[in-house]
Simulated assay, not measured.
Amino acid sequence: MNKPIPRFQEILLLTGQLNYTWTNTESLLIYLIAGLAQVDKETAIVIFLTLNTTRARIELVERLTKLPKTPAERRREILAVTEKMTQEAKLRNKYSHCIYSFDGDGEAGSTQLMRIFDTKNEIRYGKIEEINGTEIKKIENCIENLIAINKQIWKLVKDYSYPC
C-alpha cells in the first residue's frame, strides 16, 4: 500500500515543476528577441541574459513587437503570448518569493509573502496565506498554462522562421 505524499512534499514538487516550466518557457523569449530584432541566436542570448528580470525581458519583446516593421497580425499574436506570460508570472512570483511554513506532520501549510506594503502611516509585511486545495489547483493550472504558452511561442518561432 502506497503511503500518501505529505502536503509539504506535494508543494515542493509542484513549485519545482512550476519554476522549471516557467524558466523553460521564459528562455524561449530568446527566439522572439532574435526574430524581432533580426539578430542571430547568440546575440539574442546576450541581450536576454543582460536583462536581469522577467519583466524587462517581456517588455523588450513587447517593445520590439510594437515597432512599425512588425506586421499587425504578428504583433497581435506575440502580444497575446506576452500578456499570458505576464498573467502567469503573478502566481510564479508568489511561490518563488515567499517563505513556506508547515505543521509538524508536513500537512497544514502556508506561505508568507516577502513583500512590504507601505501605507500613509504604517508598513505591513509578510501576508500569510493558507496552501489549500484551491491553491494547489492554481499552481497546477499555471503549469498547464505555461506549457500551452511554451507551445505557442514555438509555433510563432516556426511560423515566422525566427532563428533557433
Rank of each mutant, 00 (worst) to 15 (best):
58 I>E: 00
49 L>G: 06
40 D>A: 03
57 R>S: 04
54 T>Q: 02
62 E>F: 03
49 L>V: 04
57 R>Q: 09
44 A>P: 02
51 L>Q: 04
57 R>T: 04
39 V>F: 09
46 V>L: 13
38 Q>G: 08
54 T>H: 03
43 T>S: 13
53 T>R: 05
44 A>Y: 07
38 Q>C: 08
37 A>C: 08
62 E>Q: 11
37 A>K: 13
36 L>N: 09
34 A>W: 12
58 I>P: 01
37 A>T: 08
62 E>R: 14
42 E>K: 15
38 Q>L: 07
47 I>M: 11
50 T>P: 00
44 A>R: 05
49 L>N: 15
44 A>K: 05
50 T>Y: 05
45 I>M: 14
53 T>M: 07
43 T>A: 12
40 D>G: 12
59 E>G: 00
59 E>I: 09
61 V>R: 02
61 V>M: 02
41 K>H: 15
59 E>S: 11
60 L>V: 04
45 I>S: 09
47 I>F: 05
49 L>S: 13
62 E>A: 08
46 V>Q: 13
44 A>C: 05
61 V>L: 03
52 N>A: 09
48 F>W: 09
60 L>C: 03
35 G>A: 06
51 L>E: 07
35 G>R: 06
55 R>C: 03
53 T>C: 00
54 T>K: 00
51 L>M: 04
37 A>R: 08
40 D>L: 02
49 L>P: 01
63 R>K: 14
42 E>V: 14
55 R>M: 07
57 R>K: 14
58 I>Q: 00
54 T>G: 01
56 A>T: 05
60 L>M: 10
37 A>P: 07
52 N>E: 13
34 A>Y: 11
44 A>T: 06
42 E>T: 15
38 Q>N: 14
48 F>Q: 01
38 Q>T: 13
40 D>F: 00
41 K>F: 15
34 A>S: 14
63 R>A: 10
42 E>H: 14
37 A>V: 10
48 F>D: 02
41 K>Q: 14
52 N>Q: 15
40 D>T: 01
61 V>A: 05
47 I>W: 08
60 L>T: 02
